[in-house]
Design a protein around this nucleic acid. Sequence first.
DNA 1: CGCTCATTTGACAAAGGTCAATCCCAGTGG
DNA 2: CCACTGGGATTGACCTTTGTCAAATGAGCG
Lengths: 267, 267
Amino acid sequence: MLSHRPPPPDRLNPASKAGEPEIPEAGAARHGIARGSSWSSNWEVKEFCLSAGIDPEATRHVERLLTKRIRFRKGDVVFRIGGWFDALYAIRMGSCKTALLAPDGQSQVAGYHMSGEVIGLDGIGGGTHECQATALEDMEVCPLPFDQVENLARQSEAFQCNLYKLLSQESVRAHALMLVLGTMRAEQRLAIFLLDLSHRYRMRGYSPCEFLLRMSREEIGSYLGLKLETVSRLFSRFQRDGLIQVQARAVKLLDPVGVGRIAEGAA
Amino acid sequence: MLSHRPPPPDRLNPASKAGEPEIPEAGAARHGIARGSSWSSNWEVKEFCLSAGIDPEATRHVERLLTKRIRFRKGDVVFRIGGWFDALYAIRMGSCKTALLAPDGQSQVAGYHMSGEVIGLDGIGGGTHECQATALEDMEVCPLPFDQVENLARQSEAFQCNLYKLLSQESVRAHALMLVLGTMRAEQRLAIFLLDLSHRYRMRGYSPCEFLLRMSREEIGSYLGLKLETVSRLFSRFQRDGLIQVQARAVKLLDPVGVGRIAEGAA
DNA sequence: CGCTCATTTGACAAAGGTCAATCCCAGTGG
DNA sequence: CCACTGGGATTGACCTTTGTCAAATGAGCG
C-alpha cells in the first residue's frame, strides 16, 4: 500500500478470514481505482483527517480551528451553488448529499457524505461553491475558515499534505462515480452503491449489513444516473433473489458476496 | 463573475454580437456548474496557470521549474495507473487523454487535455496515479517535480492559491462530466463535447469551427459513456441535419447554434 | 385519523447496445 | 505506381435495458 497511513485492517485482504460476515467492497475500490477509498473516506472518523500525523504545535492550531459547531436539520442547506466560499465543513455527525445543477435546471446528486468527511472543497478554486450540500438528517458540522486553513497549510508541511490529500480524495471519488456512470449497468451501479454504504458504515462502527438509507429512491437514482422506478425495481429484484431485504429505507444485506458478484458485473 | 481573474472576453456575454460566428458554449458551462471553465481550462495558454498573478521572486522559481522538457509520440504513455507520482506535467504542445481502469479491466476515458493544461494532479493524494495519460498526438510536456511545487506553494501565497485552483479545477471538470454521464442523452453529450472542443480550440487561437478530432470514435464514446457505433451514428445524423460536417477525424461546425440547442437538451 | 408524498408495480415505448456486414483510407510492400 | 491489408468508421437489423406513464399501495407526519 502506498498510502502514507496504514490502511484500515479490513482492507488489507479483501478475502480476509475474519469471523465477521464478509462484505465485498465496491468494485472500483478493489482494483486500485480508488486506492483504498472507493467513494468512501479512508480517514479515521474520530479524529478529523486534517490532523493526521502532524506535530503537536500544529495540532493545537487544528484544534482551535475545530471549536465552532453548527447544527443543521434534515433538509437544511449547508452551502448552496454559487454561494460564497469561505470555509470547509467537517462533518461531526449526520450526513448530507451534494448536488450539481444541470443547465436545464435539473439537479444531480454527486456525493453522499458522512461523519468524519470534509465537504466544501469544490469552492476552493473559484471562490464559490459548485454544488449544494443538503442535510439528509440532523447534522453537526465544524466550519473551518479557509483563510486559517491556508495559513496553517503554509506553516505545517504535514497539514499541507493532508489538505492536498483531501482535495485529491475528491477527485478519486469523482473518478469512481464517473466509472459507475459511464460504464456500468443499473444493477451493477446499485450493488456498488450498497457495498459502498456498507463499507462506510462499518468504518464508522455501525453494522455493515443493516442500515438505513438516508436518500430517497429518487436521490439514489440521481446519484447513480438512473430513474427512481429503476432503483425501486432493482431493490425489489435483489430482494426476490435473496440478496437483500428492503423495507422502505431499511436495508439488510443478506448475501453480500452475491451483491459483490453483481457489483463486479456478473450477469 | 467571481473568478479572481478577468474572464476571457468571449465569455462575458454568451449572446455576444461580435462579428465572429457565434459558438454557444457547452451547456454545463453556461449555468455556473463549471463557472467559466466547463471541461475546458480558463487559464491563459501561453503562460502556465501556475504563474498567474504571482510576484517576480516566485516567478523566477516557477520558471526554473519549467526548464525541462519531455517529448512524447502519439500513443506514448505519460504516466500510468498505479505509477509513482512525483511530478505534475504541464502540457506545452499536443494533447492527451486520461483513462481510468474499471474493476473488470475495461477502461474509461476520463479526460482530454490540451496545451496549457496541467495533468497528473490525481496522484497527489495517494502518491500514485489513478489514471493513465496517453498522448493522442506528438506532445511536449514540462515535468514539475512535486516536492519543488510543494515548497514553492509554502513560500508564495499566490502560487499556493494557483495550485489549489488547479486541484479544484479538476473537480470542476469531473463534476461537469458527471452531469453529462448522469443526466444527458446521447445527442446532448456529443453536442456538448463538440462545443467544448470548439471553445478550447478558440481559446488557443485555432479555428473554433473546424478542427481535427484526436480521439477515435471508441475513445469519444468511452469519454461520453456511449458505444462507438452510437457516436458514429450521431455524427452521421448531425451531418444529415446540416449541423456539422464530418469526414473521419475532421469536423466542421456548420451550425453552432443548432448544436448548442441540442446541447441544451432540445428534442 | 387523514393527508401527502414516497414507493411499488405493470404495460408500453424508446434510446442505446449488440452483432455483423461493408466501406474507406493510410500505410506497406511489391 | 499500384494492389494489398488492417484498423477505424459507417450502417443496418435486431434486441436489451432503461425510461415513461399511470395506477395502486404504503409510510410518515401533523
